[in-house]
Each structure stands twice: as C-alpha cells, then as structure tokens.
Simulated assay, not measured.
Amino acid sequence: MSATVDSLIDRLLTDQNLIALVASQRLKPLIGNTVYPASYAAPDGSARDDKGPRYCITELRDGTNICVIDSIPSQANRIETALLTDDYLGLVREVRVQAKLANDTVGIRHMLELGHRATDGAVLASTLEPEITTALRCVRDDPAPLASIAPMCLLMGVWDSRKNRTGLKLPRAFSATIEATDVSQRQRHAQYNSAWHANELASELQDAAGAKPSEIGLDGVPSGDGLGGVVVHGEIGRNAFLATNPLRANCSGKSDTAKNAARYIASLGLVALTMPASPWLRSGCNLVPDGTTLIEAVNTDGSRETLKITHSEAIAVAKQCAKTLGIDQLAPLLGEITADNIRKLASAKDESPAKAKAAKGKKTAADADATVES
C-alpha cells in the first residue's frame, strides 16, 4: 500500500486542521471554441413561447457569466458508471436490480447506474428493500452494511425522502462540476431536404403518404431556433473537492468494522478525485486537458499544500481497503422488482417535504425552497 496515500486517508478521517482536498484542471474543446453544455427543461410556469430547453447560464455583476457544462449530479453519475469498467474490478461489490420488461425480456441495472442510489425507486420496489432499509437505519452506528451494498451513498450523498421511509439524509462528501466562464450563446438552424418533394411524387404515392408526408421523411422539414452551443471566451475548468466534515459524519462509528468502512469510503473519494475527466460528455462537447490537474490540501487557516497522488495509486489503495473490509468475499446481490413491492411503494406516495412543512406553517416559503434545493 502506498504510504503517501495511506497517510492521506488517515488525515482525511482524523486531521482536524484539514478541511478538504481539492482538484482543479483546465479543459479545452477538441476543436474550435464552441461547446454544447448540458440543456435543461423550461421551469413550470414559463410563457408559451419560452418553453424550449435552455442552458444554465448565470449572469454576473461585471457583465460576464458562468455556464454549467456538466452539473454536479452528472459528474457523479459519470464517475459511478466508470467504476463498472475493467480498471476498477473488485473495487465495488456487484449489486444489481432486475425487472421484467414489456417485451418479455429482463432488464438489469447495477446499483452504480441508479440515479438515487440505494433509495432509487427501482431498489425500494425490489427484493433488496429490507436489506437496504436495515443498512440505512444503522448507518450512524456502523456504515459498513451500507458501504458493502451502496458505498457511493456515503461518498456522494443520498436522501431517503419518500413518505414512511427512514428519512435519512447523507450529505455529499465528494463533488465535481465543469463550468465555463464568459460565454456567448449560439443559435442553431437546420433544414431537412427529402429526396423528392411531395408534389413530385406520382399521385398514388402522394395518396399513400397522407396529408403530412414530412412526418415520414418524404418532404422537407425546416427547424427553427435551436440551441447551438456556446462560444467560450474565458476558460473551461473542472473543479472537484473531497470534504472532511461530511466524510467523517457519514462514516462515523467506533468499531473496527466501522473504521475499515470509513477508510474504504475515503479511498473511493481519492479515486473519484483523481479520476480523469471524461473526454466526451455529449454530442458536440468533447473536452481535453489543457494542462495538468492540480490537487491541493486545504487547511482551516486557508493555507494550501500541493499533493502528488496518481490515479493508479488511488486505485491500488482503494482495492486494498475494499479487501480489508471484505468486499471481495461478499457474494453478488441480485434484487427483483415485484408487483407487491411496487404496490407497497405506491401506497406511501412521495410527498414533498417542502410543501408539507410550508402547509403546516413550520417554515417560510424561502426555507421550504431551500430544503428542496439542498
């Protein structure tokens, strides 16, 4: 085990002077200066002519702006699914959920592919629910059961928010995002031209095509204003941090097993922190490094020290920590979604905590919105 990485894990879990590890890296488009950021649906209540998708661009007081290229949840999802590749075999236990599909096939998803992790509807509607619920209930005393089933809950957070559930809320200890500064939004127009215009076809072919031949690709279709990416005049940067306070809070417990679980989760944090950014985020958004990644330890007095830790070192230590916790000795888990579990979940429908508290007058509207946002 790398002495440097091993001692760094000790610092993450015990050094009261250490606030976080941070990693920053500049990125640039594969070609040119235009990238396609993530797009989002229009908020409820938007005017009829403003219901199209939009980018998340925040205007600043100095006239510049910041554009989200890849959000915190999206970066988390990319890291989690990357752990399913061969480079990380043995790092996380194989826990899957399967469901019978309408086409008489069976769909299977790994826990790392589920958006809400251990509290995803697919998990709670499956035969894994009792084991997951037990792990969630005991996490404050012993994080090992949850670490052995859904370790990313302890690193990237989870909220068991559905009605009549545990109510457990674990904060993010690790976070990453990609943003660009000072961008100009571009528009996109398109025109599809069919091989023959509808009125060029023989009458029997026109009749067969119907009143709207464009719907089946037998007539031209223009496209109006659309999102055409953004021109980046400033910089594109990926920033990530592994914070000690939430890490320690999520991984408390005094037993040897609990301590081994804490080291395992901290080591996964180092793997996430050092993981290279995905070069392909979406169509039109290929980003490559523009310099090396800077990793620093940030202390309570604001001082920083540069750290030298490679991704391969982090992986090696994390695999050893997983072995110490006994992850490699655990049998794979496969849960199945059942009709009974779906009915049970549906009988206690999700209720917005913000709305419930606001309705009872326990919080102001602003507090309620903050509860949802957090």
Rank of each mutant, 00 (worst) to 15 (best):
T257E: 14
M156S: 14
I79M: 13
L205K: 05
D219P: 03
M152K: 06
G224V: 02
D6Y: 05
P29K: 01
A211I: 03
L124E: 09
F241I: 08
A82V: 01
L168Q: 12
P53Y: 01
I9L: 00
G32N: 07
L168A: 12
K360G: 11
K323R: 13
G121P: 04
A368T: 10
P145G: 03
K344S: 11
D104A: 11
N33C: 02
P222S: 05
R96K: 14
L325E: 02
I178P: 03
R162P: 03
D219T: 03
Q320H: 10
H197F: 11
E129T: 05
D62Y: 04
T166C: 06
D86V: 12
Y36S: 09
S267V: 02
V97I: 15
N286C: 11
R54L: 05
D104S: 12
N245W: 13
V97W: 00
E204W: 11
S347P: 01
I216T: 12
A198V: 11
N199T: 11
K100C: 07
I327Q: 13
E373A: 13
L242F: 12
Y36R: 03
M1K: 08
E351L: 15
G167T: 00
I327T: 12
S74Q: 08
A339Q: 14
P276S: 09
S347H: 10
L30T: 07
A147P: 10
L218Q: 08
R165L: 04
A261E: 08
A366W: 05
G226W: 05
F174T: 01
L84G: 04
I19G: 01
E179P: 00
L21S: 03
D10G: 01
L83M: 09
L8D: 03
L154T: 07
M1D: 07
